[in-house]
Design a protein around this nucleic acid. Structure first.
Lengths: 206, 206
DNA sequence: CCTACCGATCGGTAGG
DNA sequence: CCTACCGATCGGTAGG
């Protein structure tokens, strides 16, 4: 129970909001997967019966849609914010990378569900998410192309596959990030940026 | 039906081996997830009833264990083969990268199930797989450290987090690889190696 | 590999 | 948010 809640008269618990339900669904979908989470599991997490959830949401699919929509919004916000800045392509790319890291660190459950459970979305919603991911990737391709034009990114870099590689490093954070880890979000982003921008081999000829 | 099979007398189908069942389980677990695949789904895939599968395997968990064990064996083989070669750390790292790409391309279903469904393994098996993944990562850390000692990898590279980044790029292939794509396994490996070894920014000072 | 089942659990509903 | 359910589906078994 949070410090701001008033203790109920006898052994009860505060009523849950719809947002509480969606947040709890994010936690369980992230940990056990969509198909590995039952409505009764979710009820337990919230201290109520599975059947009681239907006064908050129409069904289990609706919860998946909402959790993933939240994840999509967070990631989309990074692209929008980076596009609003004026600066070199390298600066914009760095902003995209740092923004992505912060979304993962600040919203790990929604990010995990977004990345791993989208395939279980109803078809119409799934298509939307695929389109959004394509647009996200396209933003990376675009900024890489601009970086090549500006002379800051090597001319022999392929924007298409390089966008995939950069997003590979970023998305993998969703798998390995643990809040209890020793690195802060800023430290992780710094190390990622060094790896992405600089590679690892000394005096590479490219 | 494969070309080597003899057509059954009337509308039947050839009996399935245990290996057929495990291979089909890999296909479905990779596509729909472990919890998204029922024994009846798997029976359909093989042209038999779900209940008939129990003459081949003890249960659904056993199938997950076997598919993932196959994946683990393939990846482990790459580390063993790379360690047998004598050469510079850079050569060994390149062999590890190319070997990993080939396992993903040649055994995509087992690789996918290994990466995405291991968390649903019975606890004892899950622990084994976690240990195997730790050893796999340790092999990368070790070869990176050797590369630094040999002067071929920059001294300010952190072997621990860099191993994670390299494996991020490699493991993401499991998500985006499509056999119908335009790049061959060798081309993909070449591009990955260029990205990992060289970075993307021109004239980086490191 | 099929027939014929089993108990447990699933997502979900009616009515309060 | 609970009581009291529903039909469908789940993993799995006995016996052939």
């Amino acid at each position: 129970m949070s410090a701001t809640e008033v203790a109920p008269v006898s052994g009860g618990s505060a009523p849950r909001s719809r947002d509480d339900v969606v947040a709890a669904a994010g936690r369980l979908f992230a940990k056990r997967g969509f198909h590995g989470t039952s409505m009764r599991d979710l009820g337990d997490e919230l201290g109520m019966l599975g059947s009681s959830l239907y006064s908050h949401v129409r069904g289990k699919n609706e919860l998946l849609v909402e959790v993933i929509a939240k994840g999509a919004e967070f990631f989309n916000g990074v692209v929008v914010a980076a596009a609003e800045q004026t600066g070199s392509a390298i600066d914009e790319l760095r902003n995209l990378v740092y923004g992505h890291v912060h979304v993962v660190v600040d919203h790990i459950d929604e990010a995990r569900t977004f990345l791993f459970e989208s395939r279980f979305l109803p078809e119409a919603n799934r298509r939307q998410i695929v389109e959004m991911r394509d647009a996200y990737e396209a933003a990376y391709r675009k900024v890489i192309s601009r970086g090549i034009a500006e002379g800051d990114i090597a001319a022999d870099v392929d924007p298409g596959i390089t966008a995939i590689f950069i997003l590979s490093v970023l998305n993998a954070l969703i798998r390995w990030y643990r809040p209890s880890g020793e690195r802060t979000a800023a430290e992780i982003a710094d190390e990622m940026w060094a790896f992405i921008s600089g590679g690892i081999v000394t005096g590479v000829s490219r």
